[in-house]
Design a protein around this nucleic acid. Structure first.
Lengths: 189, 189
DNA sequence: GACAAACCTGAGGTTGCCTCGGAATACTGT
DNA sequence: ACAGTATTCCGAGGCAACCTCAGGTTTGTC
């Protein structure tokens, strides 16, 4: 897949950019379930063109998130090198929540992607879990963990909090994270 | 609203029951976003009849949940009288999560209902928050709370966990609850 | 058994998903 | 400059679901 034989035609590149720009705007305003026909219309392109570029909603979302994901993973790598193990873990959780706040409904797509290998976001989810795992391991070695936990637990917490932020408020989500992190981390640390 | 002038006609009662029964089955199997036309079809009734009885999806859901809600609130009242304040709070959280597991998608409807006064489920959400508040207050008086929290926090945790149970697994949801409760409650208690 | 009130029906307008054959367009080489 | 071809685009059309409403049907009552 993605056989990049040669450079795409100029109109194709133009349309792709236009579609991505409009999709970003619409998803921001209306969430990940916004009408794809509406996006195509706004981009000044026929619906078939949208589907030619992005075979489904997830693919479009995946393309939109690509850069943003790279930045997120870079942040994760940085955090692995920063001193405070516990603080790094907390910072990671907040970073992912902020990441998922881009579009309403994104938390659900991510949660689905972690199990579904066919999802365009599967790889990203696996990587997030992996970073969570490593941050957890480091915190455990530093004696900062009060109880056992895995990258999957962290992933679940992040997604749950992102969902709460969507449904209720960022504030409420913050309180949920505080509660959970208080249960996870050693107080003093 | 609900001006119960007099008893509805026999066919109306029959259809209502039939619709509720089929809706329950379909929502259980397919979640709260299942097709209403499909439900009407299964109930042997025209789509217009469904809408005559239940003006929207939430109203249908509200009618379905009514008995179940009463049972839940009764359980909440019982828990307020049981000895261990901390254990009662934990039990309440688990009871609501089990309640929300009835239909996939219910967590989102509940989360929406707490803010939306027009929702048929608003009252139920308020009552849940209220019970959470009282259980929290009792636990605080018993010295079982490690930190401040409100009924809204408990409501958010319950809904987040219910959502995790839908998206990932009941297991994962359980671990999230453990984490959060560990952050909330005094260890020994 | 006839009348009114209550109830039911289902076609139809609307929106959104997605596909596919045919038209249009951009590149390539001469 | 231009023909030839591969690439890309278009948008009608089939499908499913939402919801409404004018008109027909059933029930209960006197």
């Amino acid at each position: 897949m993605t056989e990049s034989g040669r450079r795409p035609r100029a109109d194709a590149r133009r349309n792709r950019e236009r579609l991505l720009a409009e999709a970003d705007a619409v998803f921001r305003a209306q969430g990940t379930n916004a009408s794809l026909e509406g996006i195509a219309r706004r981009a000044g392109v026929a619906i078939g063109t949208l589907y030619a570029h992005f075979p489904n909603r997830r693919a479009l979302l995946g393309a939109l998130l690509h850069q943003r994901n790279d930045a997120l993973f870079a942040r994760g790598a940085d955090l692995l090198d920063e001193p405070g193990a516990a603080a790094a873990l907390t910072a990671w959780v907040h970073a992912v929540i902020a990441h998922a706040a881009a579009y309403q409904g994104l938390a659900a797509v991510l949660a689905e992607g972690v199990d579904d290998e066919a999802s365009e976001l599967h790889q990203a989810c696996v990587e997030m879990t992996d970073i969570g795992d490593r941050l957890i391991a480091r915190a455990r070695e530093a004696g900062a963990l009060r109880r056992e936990a895995t990258g999957a637990d962290i992933f679940a917490l992040m997604n749950a909090a992102a969902w709460v932020a969507e449904q209720m408020s960022a504030d409420q989500a913050g309180r949920l994270v505080e509660l959970a992190m208080a249960g996870l981390l050693v107080p003093s640390s």
